[in-house]
């Protein structure tokens, strides 16, 4: 009788990455942690889809969008900000590449660059929001203001949580916690980061360009 082969799958390890655990347990093509993240992202996608569907109802039924008495959204600055977010996604890819090659320096640089670019994105969004509020566009300014602040604010909260998660990971990297092929937390954060960048592409087109 052959012994039963027990293949431990990767645990989430979101905040306590000190336990040695490979990215994918031997014998399993997809770790439990990665699968859980994919399911979570599917849930998040449906959440954003519901918000976008509500936005589409108001946007496509409006005769004038934005209403004549309300300020236009800052397209140029947001274009630049979009490139900043895309660059942060590239930086995250570099970080994951460094992790796979066990290049600590590239990992640290990639994570730091992604964090800084994500923070710049948030700062620019915040300053634009302040400007728009000063020009009279608030959450209660009809459907235009409500849908804008709900959709973009919802995404901003996601970017903020991704940046905070990244900060925690950077602390772990500084303390050298990701040796011994422990890469699940960073790869999960990267998945979340790519999701946030991808969602922004859809939101930017719908809210700013459509």
């Amino acid at each position: 009788m052959a012994p039963r082969r027990v293949t431990p799958s990767g645990s989430l390890l979101l905040l306590s990455p000190q336990i040695p655990m490979p990215a994918t347990a031997p014998g399993l093509p997809i770790s439990n942690a990665r699968l859980a993240m994919v399911i979570f992202l599917a849930f998040e996608t449906m959440l954003f889809a519901a918000c976008i569907a509500a936005f589409l109802v108001f946007r496509l039924s409006a005769t004038a969008w934005p209403p004549a008495d309300l300020p236009r959204l800052p397209i140029t600055v947001t274009w630049l900000n979009t490139f900043v977010l895309i660059a942060s996604g590239y930086a995250m890819t570099r970080a994951v590449g460094g992790l796979r090659r066990a290049d600590q320096r590239q990992l640290e640089r990639g994570l730091m660059a992604a964090g800084i670019l994500g923070s710049i994105f948030l700062a620019v969004q915040g300053s634009e929001w302040i400007r728009l509020v000063r020009h009279g566009l608030t959450l209660s300014t009809g459907m235009y203001g409500a849908t804008f602040y709900t959709l973009i604010g919802f995404h901003g909260v996601h970017v903020l949580s991704a940046v905070l998660w990244l900060l925690l990971l950077m602390v772990g990297v500084q303390r050298d916690r990701f040796r011994n092929r422990v890469r699940v937390p960073i790869e999960l954060c990267a998945m979340y980061w790519y999701f946030v960048v991808a969602v922004w592409g859809a939101l930017f087109y719908l809210v700013y360009l459509l």
Binding site: T45, A49, A50, V57, R59, L60, T63
Partner: peptide, 18 residues
Amino acid sequence: DPLVGAINTSVIFLMSMP
């Protein structure tokens, strides 16, 4: 009403997501 087309588009979009 243009709202009819907007709701239909929204329904199709949301239905396709899953």
